[in-house]
């Protein structure tokens, strides 16, 4: 039995009369990369936002380790172990790469409210920030100001910040977007490394990457789940082919 960390049950989100997500159910298990596919506007980012709490659901439930977290706002879900990255790079541009991660680690520190001690004095947080940077492959770039990192490095930093929070569930919104082939390969390597200890939801357009790393694939079209299953099943599915893969990829 898979160790399911995060489960969505019948998530629906209406914008006005329009359903951005309708009755979406999926589950994320530790040790699995669950890829979410679909054409633009299929509702993938909305789905991540519903899972992370950035958007409130219209109906449906989000369960973390079997506990209902639907009512929790995003920062509380984050504290509960749901980490996310953003489709458009969303970092602290003026901070160094290290400070981005140290701050992320600080969110878990019960002493984060102290106002007169030195933020860099807490060794545990420094170590945690550095470890996250190393893991994401940015160890050598720690002292570079985030805004001046290359695009690919900024994408890595996105992930490093989530790792620094120690999240068990990773919701990754197009981590490979805009990356060169070499950078992509490194990122896929990283995802494989992270897989054993995490439950990963991967929204991605790069088909090769998805089928290389995914253990399970869910295809969304117009806000609904079209099909969900192992990669081989999705590859063979006529419905998927028609709705999505049939178009030039």
């Amino acid at each position: 039995m898979a160790d399911v960390l995060l489960a969505a049950e019948g998530l629906t989100r209406l914008f006005g009369g329009l359903a951005a997500n309708r009755d979406v159910s999926l589950s994320l298990a530790r040790g699995e990369v669950h890829a979410l596919l679909g054409p633009n506007g299929a509702g993938k980012s909305t789905c991540i936002n519903l899972l992370s709490g950035d958007l409130p659901v219209t109906s449906g439930r989000v369960l973390l380790r079997g506990k209902d977290v639907t009512a929790l706002p995003n920062h509380k879900r984050s504290l509960a172990g749901i980490g996310r990255s953003y489709q458009r790079t969303n970092i602290f541009a003026k901070f160094t790469a290290f400070e981005n991660c140290r701050l992320a680690a600080q969110s878990r520190d019960p002493r984060a409210w102290r106002i007169l001690s030195d933020a860099h004095g807490t060794v545990a947080l420094r170590d945690r920030g550095r470890a996250a940077l190393e893991q994401a492959g940015l160890g050598a770039r720690a002292d570079i100001v985030a805004a001046t990192l290359s695009h690919g490095e900024q994408r890595q930093l996105e992930i490093a910040m989530v790792l620094a929070t120690g999240a068990a569930v990773l919701l990754l919104d197009e981590p490979l977007a805009g990356m060169g082939s070499e950078e992509s390969a490194r990122m896929i390597e990283l995802l494989k490394q992270l897989r054993p200890a995490h439950a990963i939801l991967l929204v991605e357009h790069d088909m090769d990457a998805v089928f290389e790393v995914a253990d399970r694939v869910t295809v969304m079209v117009e806000g609904r789940v079209l099909e969900s299953g192992p990669p081989a099943q999705i590859r063979a599915s006529a419905a998927v082919r028609e709705a999505y893969l049939g178009e030039p990829v």
């Binding site: 950035d54 706002p73 602290f92 984060a112 106002i115």
Partner: peptide, 21 residues
């Protein structure tokens, strides 16, 4: 201080600070 780093982070990117918890 940790608090100071947090408020500067909020000024820079509040959405991300919330996402970080």
């Amino acid at each position: 201080s940790p608090f100071g780093r947090a408020i500067v982070g909020i000024r820079s990117n509040e959405q991300r600070m919330r996402a970080l918890g």
